[in-house]
Design a protein around this nucleic acid. Sequence first.
RNA 1: GCGGAAGUGGCGGAACUGGUAGACGCGCUGGACUUAGGAUCCAGUGGGGCAACCCGUGGGGGUUCGAGUCCCCCCUUUCGCACCA
Length: 822
Amino acid sequence: MQSQTSPDTDKRPVEYDPGTVEEKWQQRWRELSTNATDIRGADHPFYALMMFPYPSAEGLHVGNLFAFVGNDIYGRFQRLQGHNVFEPLGYDAFGIHSENYALKVGVHPGKLIPENIVNFRRQLERAGLMVDWRYTLATTDPEYYKWTQWVFLQLLKQGLAYRKKAAVNWCPSCKTVLANEQVIGGRCERCDTPVEQRFLEQWFFRISAYAERLLRNLDHLDWSESTKTAQRNWIGKSEGAEIEFSISGRQEVEPIRVFTTRPDPVFGATYMVLAPEHSLVQTLTTDAQRGELEAYLERTAKRDVVARKTSTEKTGVFTGSYAVNPAMGADIPIWVSDYVLMEYGTGAIMAVPGHDERDFEFAQAFKLPIVRVVLAEGEAPDAPLRSAVVAWDGATLVNSGRFDGLPVEAAKRAIVSMLQEHGAAHPVVNYRLHDWCISRQRYWGPPIPIIYCDKCGPVPVPEKDLPVILPYVEDFKPDDSGVSPLARHEDWYRVQCPQCGEMGRRETDVSDTFLDSAWYFLRYPSVGLDDVPFDPDITRKWLPVNSYIGGNEHAVLHLLYSRFVTMVLNEAGHLDFEEPYVRFRAHGLIIRNGAKMSKSRGNVVIPDEYIEKWGADAFRTYLMFLGPFEEGGDFRDASVSGVKRFLDRLWASVVTAVESGNGAGTSDALDVRRKLHQTIRKVGEDIPRLSYNTAIAAMMEYMNTLRRGERTPSRAEVEPLVQLVSPFAPHIAEELWEKLGRRGSVLDAGWPAYDPALVEEEMIELAVQVNGKLRGRLHVPKGIAEEAAVAEAMRDGAIAKFVSGEPKKIVFVPGRLLNIVV
RNA sequence: GCGGAAGUGGCGGAACUGGUAGACGCGCUGGACUUAGGAUCCAGUGGGGCAACCCGUGGGGGUUCGAGUCCCCCCUUUCGCACCA
């Protein structure tokens, strides 16, 4: 090919066999501990974290690998920059996922999970990740969940874990309680069954107390904007007022409190609505209405959450009682309806049917009065009100006594302060964020470390007694008793109270998987230490995490919970930082041939098959090449060949360079040298931006330059390229590094420097436009002056013919373009 | 309904703060070497036109010497949230 010597034999492609090369280097990395991180001795620690996978029976998914490779490239790059990089990986092995699969195949999860982990480990090693496997963990290890239980106890100690009987989301299929976050559109996130309501005693974490801090800190985090937005929306801060409505003729009953972001139309509040679960419902129901109301409550309780939350049909019952509208003192009826949700605000509303669509529908259905109190800009006061008018900008009040004519914004403030003087209102900030229910009535999780004692109540298991081992039980199938399968094992749950020594009973619920993953990053560098969850010196050195890469599906759940737990541990004095991840980037999703991958479609990419066929290096590089890392892309089988071809050519170039003995000195061809230095700069700029696809394209471009014409590349021309390629295709890079006669891992060779003088071209192509239209290109010296450029342009007939007479204006962008306006 | 992201060749995708649209790769066309090639190498490849040129970044307006990029109005896709008061 490039060689001029014996064209006959050299036309033969120089190919390499990825299988042999990759096996050799993976073995060598193991023998030489190339990927090991010196945790205690590191001078320049860099913690490159990736979200750990759930070790499924199906094995590693390309989506996992896409994320891991993306993180690995970043980590390897940091190492080449001179950092001590720690790139650990473990397994998120507890949870409903594993348990359901175990139930399906009838094998105990305690047997399945270790098998899956072995398979995952094999697949991960094959991918050539720079992971230090001495520091791996599985959330199912007692040495790990001992400390998950410890985290629970810290929250309890801080008063942030509490028990309450609450309406919870109950999945009748999984037979367990779900967190709000696990309910998608009223259905179970895992099995898509409509979720029902149940009332159970649950353990909650008071994350709502941290809403403001979780929100505020986002402003200073170097995170993907989309992730921050998702968290902001989830926290859902809204500012408004709480208004009290006293009960007409019943001073002894506490007033109904409502939260509203729109206090201005209070004069139009013609009735009130309580959520069916509201505590005042019984008190306010008159005897005459009781029968009808009880029937309604029963109906709504049975009604599944989907129907309740998605149907727009309004149902409800009058309680028989009246409240006093504090604005003008009128009595307004109090209704009960399931369109008001107990979870938001106070579970009660003042209904303003003139200006709220839901209230309007309800008022129409039950023939309640609708009053107009807000006028949209330019609207006549006597315009008929056919639907709710939700007006804001430029709207003014009517039928609101002395507030008539006031713009909405001013009216909001004026009305709240008027009501406030009467003690009937005060400004309030409300959040959508609910407390985190961590109880699960399941088997496959860490038991919550609590012992119930008749005398002492709930008593925390003393820290010295941790872990509370999850016992091996054969019948781990959940039932609909509302309690965990562990509650069927008296020998396990009957235990002495740690305080008084009387017989007590263990908490039989286990904790949410999200608690396992809320602190795992703290454990990695301290894996192996069994007297602390995380060593203070090690933690000071390695945390917070420098770079975290993961999927945006965890934008609100895992990322919010781990931030919360970090804040709490910080307050308790266990950590000296309150945000766990300095930088977070969400990777994109991979689709296949334009369609979502799914088992049912049968279009799932199985990494093993591709690695077998193309090699891990080509597969890794292709994954990074198929689209922008943060956006994902379309996996097309036919396209892998392009990347493989690039690696083949890289191999061939290095081999011929070495064989030709073409000096290790500087390269002879100036244009090749320039391109090399431009490539070094480009790749070095692209990797930190996670713009991997363009970094690879740049290397391919350089390869094309290298191969142009009948020439043999020199070592100096190929050696830096091997370094640039190494984060993407580490095995071939190592092999070629060795072929080049270099000792040690290419990982420790550093990152090549570029010469700024060579990056800049001396001659450039100057685009010449006439009236903004491209008319020609000039090959001119970089620093050419405007006058010289114009003169040069006018000598070019193809350009000059568009210019007649004196130009009106000349726009000159040095080094780029000349625009002659005539 | 609300919120996020995105619409560029046959396809995946490039284009930093407005400045040569289509880098890189796949595919395709032609050629070389071949018993053969789904290997390799070389050349070409947005559309139209013999050409000079013209048209082109979802559609329509606008700002500008100049717009894929900025502004306004639509359309489409996609991902979250969703009776949130």
